[in-house]
């Protein structure tokens, strides 16, 4: 039996999936629906990566304009709609960091956090708790340095060279440490995949 909360979550995901499919067919109203349902979560992600509210707003605008063009590339069989959108937003924000439009760390993370909402609200409904625990569990299996390097790369768009410099580690050492970590991570995620079947 599904609980009422699970049913709500499943319905929210299905509605978002359908809206993205309509965006892909050029339905502007559907884009607004996607915006209403997801902009707070995606803005949080842009803000976390860029650190500056103004930049994060520009990035968010970018995200939905790109979504208007690329909604057709969403494959519902591969990822939940909110996972896909979250990665989509993360990649756009990181691109912005890379192209040098933004000075990294323009605003300290703590300050950015002050703008954050306290209420998780509707966006949180869309998340998939089972998936979340899986990646956390697997990163938790890595040694602390490797885990945090991988998280820094993911959240801050740090390259090998930047990670090496920040931790005063030779580049080669950093590369092999992270590669070993990624191999372990992959094995762990696949292990969990098998168990889930």
């Amino acid at each position: 039996m599904l609980s009422a909360a699970d049913r709500n979550a499943a319905e929210a995901r299905a509605a978002l999936k359908a809206a993205i499919a309509r965006v892909a067919r050029g339905d502007r109203a559907a884009l607004e629906q996607v915006y209403r349902a997801t902009h707070r979560k995606l803005f949080g992600i842009c803000l976390r990566i860029l650190g500056d509210p103004k930049e994060a707003e520009d990035a968010l605008q970018d995200v939905y304009i790109s979504l208007w063009r690329r909604a057709a590339s969403y494959d519902p069989d591969r990822a939940s709609p909110i996972s896909w959108l979250a990665i989509f937003a993360r990649n756009r924000a990181i691109d912005r960091l890379r192209t040098g439009k933004v000075q990294r760390g323009a605003v300290p993370v703590e300050e950015a956090a002050e703008i954050a909402d306290d209420a998780p609200a509707a966006d949180a409904l869309l998340e998939d708790a089972e998936q979340t625990s899986r990646i956390h569990h697997c990163i938790g299996q890595l040694d602390a340095d490797t885990g945090s390097s991988i998280r820094n790369a993911f959240f801050e768009g740090r390259t090998y060279a930047e990670l090496a410099e920040a931790s005063d580690t030779p580049l080669g050492t950093m590369k092999s440490r992270i590669r070993r970590g990624l191999a372990k991570l992959k094995a762990c995620l696949e292990q969990d995949d098998l168990e889930a079947k």
Binding site: R40, K41, F43, G44, I45, L47, R48, A56, A79, S83, W84, A86, I87, R90, A113, I115, A116, D117, P120, A121, D123, A124, E127, D128, Q131, T132, R134, I135, H136, I139, R151, F154, F155
Partner: peptide, 10 residues
């Protein structure tokens, strides 16, 4: 992508 779930909405 689920790592992004820990980021607070804003």
């Amino acid at each position: 992508s689920p790592l992004l779930d820990e980021v607070p909405a804003a």
